[in-house]
């Protein structure tokens, strides 16, 4: 696997377009409805009070939808057709939080099928990382 510093108009260190999204209970409820994930931790404040979080939290996969928006904007073809994602959920997103999704190309390499970029991805609430991981997408 050979590594490159740049390919076409993509280079190592390049920032991906940022997504900033306010998450409120209305959005969490809408996601619960759209996804069918009605875990009371997300939508039932009384139940959520009994958990370690003390209140409702957003679905982790809602935050991943924002990550997908970043990758779709940056490289739709590579993301939707063969894209890979590997992430860990580090902390909760509460109603009222603003999620900022940041990404950066950290390597470009050749596979048999073509040239790929690996991007580091972090979602922040304020200064706190709540999701961290990477994606791999074809770029040619």
């Amino acid at each position: 696997m050979s590594e490159l510093q740049s390919y076409a108009n993509i280079s190592v260190g390049q920032a991906l377009p940022e997504v900033i999204q306010v998450v409120d209970q209305h959005m969490i409820d809408a996601y619960a409805d759209a996804s069918g994930d009605i875990n009371p931790l997300h939508i039932d404040p009384e139940f959520a009070k009994t958990t370690i979080f003390g209140r409702t939290i957003a679905h982790g996969l809602l935050t991943l939808a924002f990550v997908s928006r970043v990758l779709s904007t940056w490289n739709w073809q590579g993301w939707a057709y063969g894209g890979e994602l590997d992430i860990a959920f580090l902390g909760p997103v509460y109603p009222g939080d603003t999620v900022r999704v940041c990404g950066e190309v950290d390597s470009i390499f050749q596979r048999d099928e073509g040239v790929y970029a690996r991007c580091q991805l972090v979602c922040y609430c304020g200064e706190k990382p709540v999701v961290k991981g990477f994606s791999v997408c074809k770029i040619n």
Binding site: G60, L61, L85
Partner: peptide, 9 residues
């Protein structure tokens, strides 16, 4: 709680 996720599309 969902702790980690990998996808290949």
């Amino acid at each position: 709680i969902h702790a980690k996720q990998q996808f290949k599309f």
